[in-house]
Simulated scan of single mutants.
Amino acid sequence: MTQNTVHAYAAPSPKAPLERTTIVRRELGEHDILIDIKFAGICHSDIHTVRGEWGEGGHFPLVPGHEIAGVVAEVGPGVTRHRPGDRVGVGCFVDSCRACENCRAGLQQYCTGELGSVGTYGAIGRDGQVTQGGYATRLVVDENYALRIPEGIALDAAAPLLCAGITVYSPLVHWQAGPGKKVAVVGLGGLGHMAVKIAHAMGAEVTVLSQSLRKKDDGLKLGADHYRATSDPATFEELAGTFDLILNTVSADLDLNAYFGLLRTDGTFVQLGAPEHPLSVAPFSLITQRKAFAGSMIGGIPETQEMLDFCAGHGIAAEIELIEAERINEAYERVLASDVRYRFVIDAATI
């Protein structure tokens, strides 16, 4: 093996099980850092991508993983933001054009430049090569796209914050969740459990809307004030016109119009999960009370750092199940069966 060859787990083709392999990382550039990956979270997006559920094609073999926590091993000669030994994280993108209005505003996830926001895996970087993700032992990334992980958060529990954490933090901040606001979280999974923790820490009144009451005790322990089953028609009758903000964290096909009925005047329903099929909206379910149906995607570099610092300051981290790499395919099946509380994290030492 060459110095740049690292062990990884990759999907050789769409829908194929992941298998152990090696990949080659690029040479360390002027502003690059080399990260020894310690932990990598498993996101539902990884499963959607490697199974071709967001469109056929793509770049295979593919190493997924965009919830990455590790330690800086080496830095390029021009690096000023990080030093060897620093605890760092990498999230859903590893580059952007850096010049468009959104990039200049710190909204790199919404880059409108020619390069666009370059995904951590399955995208084409500025070097023309396909990006490969965090189910690996090492990663080379530009220093500007790595985050500082505060000492107050364990690295394994920090990894999911780089996607699940920022995905819910960003809309909670944007739609001003806080004291006096009633926030509902649809689904208590990888995203949902982080939404409950963060919204509670922001001072909002939090309600979990889950298909059943199976996880009610967990939801209340995580910080929810209320927990209601969406399989019970009384939930939609009794909570009509209640919420200022609803975060939909699930990727299932929902009756959106029923959920819009839970919003108060000027309330907002934010779609975070990305279902395989289009969803149907009846315009009058929004028009009559000036309700909004919005979307949100992760966060930029400044906001992601803000989220990590917020979580460290409030003692927030993901609830995880640490697994060895050989159990990745089993973990995928368990994610699909909602059999994880609440995020699988791969111990990269086992890769």
Rank of each mutant, 00 (worst) to 15 (best):
T80R: 14
D347K: 15
L254I: 10
H174R: 15
R334F: 03
V186F: 04
G128S: 02
I328Y: 05
T304R: 13
F236Y: 15
K221I: 11
P283A: 14
S212M: 08
E324F: 07
E276D: 11
T131Q: 04
A331L: 07
K291A: 03
Q289R: 14
H277S: 13
R327H: 15
D255P: 11
G91L: 01
S296N: 13
P61Q: 09
Q289F: 05
Y227R: 13
G29K: 10
P171R: 12
I346D: 10
P233V: 02
D225T: 11
Q305H: 14
I42L: 15
E276W: 13
S117H: 01
G58N: 12
G41I: 05
V208D: 05
A325M: 05
E151L: 12
T242K: 08
E56N: 08
G119W: 02
P160Y: 03
I320M: 11
V94M: 08
E56W: 06
T235I: 11
D218W: 14
G57P: 04
H200A: 05
T167C: 11
A105K: 12
L272P: 01
T22Q: 15
V71L: 07
L147K: 10
I68N: 07
L18F: 00
H174V: 12
L336N: 14
G57R: 02
S170N: 12
G299P: 14
I323Y: 00
D217N: 08
A234S: 15
I37E: 00
T350Q: 13
A325G: 15
V250E: 06
F60G: 03
E205I: 04
P17A: 15
D156W: 06
L62K: 01
G106I: 14
L322H: 13
R126T: 11
A40N: 13
I198R: 01
D309F: 00
S212A: 07
R138T: 05
R25H: 05
D127Y: 08
I33W: 04
G152Y: 08
S285K: 12
T131C: 01
G76A: 10
T137Q: 11
L263A: 09
W54P: 05
S251H: 09
G267S: 12
E324G: 15
G116H: 10
G223R: 07
I149Y: 11
E321S: 07
C97E: 06
D232H: 13
G219V: 09
V63Q: 02
V140A: 13
N144W: 10
S96V: 04
D127F: 01
M1R: 14
L256W: 03
G55A: 08
N102C: 06
A177P: 06
I246G: 07
L256D: 00
K15W: 06
Q132Y: 04
A274Q: 11
A69F: 12
G219W: 02
A201Q: 03
R343T: 05
D127K: 08
L139Y: 02
P150V: 07
M202R: 12
E143K: 09
P150I: 12
G78L: 13
S212W: 06
L147G: 02
D225M: 05
L213G: 03
A199L: 03
G300P: 01
A204W: 01
G192Q: 03
L172V: 10
L272M: 05
E114V: 02
G295Q: 06
Y145N: 07
R20N: 06
D218T: 15
W175D: 04
K221Q: 15
A11T: 08
A317Q: 00
L139R: 03
